[in-house]
Design a protein around this nucleic acid. Structure first.
Length: 555
RNA sequence: GCCCCGGUAGCUCAGAUGGAUAGAGCAACUGCCUUCUAAGCAGUGGGUCCCGGGUUCGAAUCCUGGCCGGGGCGCCA
């Protein structure tokens, strides 16, 4: 990548300058910063390193910069390095190189921006993993989009990625869900003496599931008795909820490689395995009738209950077994769990647990995102699955559309709390920047339709000299850098801003540069521009793909 | 009380390893469609980067003390 080439060239130049005595001897930094100047007129890349070295070199920054530039061997993509006060070195991309990138992009095609950052590494991204006790609510939308886009980014960055949904189908909550399903099923058959437990799930969706199961299966589960009947009905209800979750996520373009059942951890011995491991390691204490994990030994603020005094394992027990399974049994090099900020307190204990199991805690990254506040009619909407007062993910997706939803969720960093105004989301959908981006793609398609009589294979790209053309290419060649940034920071929102900037550059080009022309004299230029537009389409399509958004050909 | 995340234009938010005159969308105002899509483009106005102190040649960015908002500190998940 260009910035890496510049870094390398700068390091070499510093060494040369010292060897030739142009700079005094001092310890050189292992790496130097390269950034983009605020003002594009200054250049495409810049380094402030000379200012940082001024103290060590006991020289004025600008003198250092001059010495460095004199000993600098420019990378192929750069044709000019200039010194600017108070000590910047600015680099300009060569026009010839930029023009050549049009072909490079077209050749790369679907593989454009593919990096080697994660080559040879298997990473798992686990996201959403909402309790399967009802429809997904809006709170999961951010998780879904973040996790899905992140997984895509990592894939492009070279990692082998697995997308996973953890199904919490074990434990007390599940039993309550089963009891609720059974009661609703019985009620649908006229057996009103069955009641939903107080701590059960009172939402209307459970009534619907009960009615559906009654209609499909009649009274035969009643005949099994409450114990077995509840088991059978609950199982069917669970499958129903999971199927709907799958559909709802698919409606946003979110899918998984694997749905992992919590239950199997107990059925297949992983829970027993980690318990004996922890016991052997001396990480367990027994008091107050419960089994505790000695988290304070690893810097935790308190110990954690693993097995309750009634003998049932808590959810932390499952989490330990689950992550043991991820790292040890399935051998992922790295795992990224996407969690809402309300789970922030669990991060430290997970890392303690990693240490207790003898695993490097750095292999587990928990990506926390701040919770979304929903507003409707100017008021904050509270979400609760128990009371049934929920806004489902599905109804919002249906209202605002998958692309707008994804763009909205992706255009904010995970750390920012966001307000989602349901009224505004619908009302503003026409004003949403997402359409500017997609419009750019549709516009490109339109130009290409008009120009399809011309073959641009032999285009003379040296004719691409208009500032709008070069600005557009400059943007296009930055995609790999953006992908790297997003992958390293686990921050897919950079893609959203890049896509918008790219679209804006395309629109400006469109205004300034006529592509298709009926005048035969324009043919060479028209051909070059067609090729540029096709390359731009590749870039735009690529970034939309990674974000999981559609690239419409007509709007 | 302790811990985590925020506070940047009227609103919603970007500002990667500290760097040059702090940006975008929306909202407001002014222009631009005989020719490839005006869901667009060009321009104007709009800022004590929450407040104080500190580190630095240089701070929206780092440290520290406050203030405000969100979240956490269960034998719930």
């Amino acid at each position: 990548m260009i910035d890496a080439d510049i870094r390398a060239a700068l390091c070499a130049a510093l060494r040369h300058a010292q060897q030739k005595g142009a700079l005094p001897a001092f310890d050189l930094p292992a790496d130097v910063p390269v950034e983009h100047p605020r003002d594009a007129a200054l250049g495409d890349y810049a380094t402030p390193v000379c200012m940082q070295l001024a103290r060590l070199a006991r020289m004025a920054p600008i003198k250092i910069a001059q010495a460095v530039v004199e000993h600098l061997q420019l990378p192929a993509a750069i044709d000019e390095a200039t010194v600017a006060a108070p000590g910047f070195i600015n680099f300009r991309l060569a026009q010839r190189w930029l023009q050549g990138q049009v072909n490079a992009i077209l050749e790369a095609g679907d593989t454009l921006g593919t990096l080697t950052l994660g080559t040879g590494q298997r990473v798992q991204v686990e996201y959403v993993s909402a309790n399967p006790t009802g429809p997904l609510h809006m709170g999961s939308a951010r998780n879904a989009v973040l996790g899905d886009a992140l997984a895509s980014v990592l894939q492009v960055a070279g990692y082998t990625v697995q997308r996973e949904y953890y199904v919490n189908d074990a434990g007390a909550r599940m039993r309550m869900f089963y009891a609720t399903a059974y009661a609703r099923y019985a009620q649908a058959l006229g057996r009103t003496e069955f009641e939903v437990p107080e701590d059960g799930y009172h939402g209307a969706y459970m009534v619907a599931i009960g009615e559906q199961l009654a209609a499909e299966h009649g009274a035969r589960f009643l005949e099994l008795g409450e114990e077995a009947g509840s088991q059978a009905v609950g199982e069917l209800a669970l499958n129903q909820v999971l199927a709907e979750a799958r559909n709802d996520l698919a409606a946003m373009g979110v899918s998984y490689d694997r749905w992992f059942s919590e239950r199997t951890l107990y059925q297949q011995g992983q829970y027993d395995a980690i318990m004996s491991l922890l016991r052997q390691g001396g990480h367990l204490d027994l008091h107050d009738g419960a089994v505790w994990f000695n988290a304070t030994a690893f810097g935790g603020s308190k110990d954690e209950v693993i097995v309750r005094s009634d003998g049932t394992p808590g959810y932390f027990a499952s989490d330990i077994a689950y992550h043991y399974n991820k790292f040890v049994e399935r051998g992922f090099d790295r795992v990224i769990d996407v969690w809402g900020a309300d789970h922030q307190g669990h991060v430290a204990r997970m890392h303690s647990m990693m240490q207790a199991l003898g695993l490097d805690p750095a292999r587990l990254t928990v990506l926390l995102y701040q919770l979304v506040t929903l507003k409707r009619g100017g008021e904050i909407v509270r979400l609760s699955k128990r009371t049934g007062d929920i806004i489902t993910l599905r109804e919002v997706v249906d209202e605002v559309g998958a692309d707008a939803m994804r763009y909205f969720m992706l255009s904010r960093s995970a750390d920012s709390q966001m307000e989602f105004d349901l009224d505004l989301a619908v009302a503003q959908s026409d004003e949403n920047p997402v359409f500017d981006i997609q419009y750019a793609h549709a516009r490109i398609c339109s130009i290409l339709r008009h120009g399809e009589i011309v073959s641009d294979e032999q285009a003379d790209l040296s004719l691409l000299t208009h500032p709008a053309e070069l600005t557009l290419i400059r943007r296009m060649v930055r995609l790999p850098e953006i992908i790297q940034l997003a992958a390293e920071q686990l921050a897919p929102h950079h893609l959203a801003y890049y896509a918008y900037d790219l679209a804006a550059d395309l629109h400006a080009f469109y205004r300034d540069c006529r592509v298709v022309s009926s005048n035969p004299e324009d043919l060479p230029q028209s051909t070059a521009r067609l090729r540029l537009v096709r390359a731009c389409q590749v870039v735009l399509k690529r970034v939309l793909d990674i974000m999981g958004m559609s690239a419409p050909e007509v709007m």
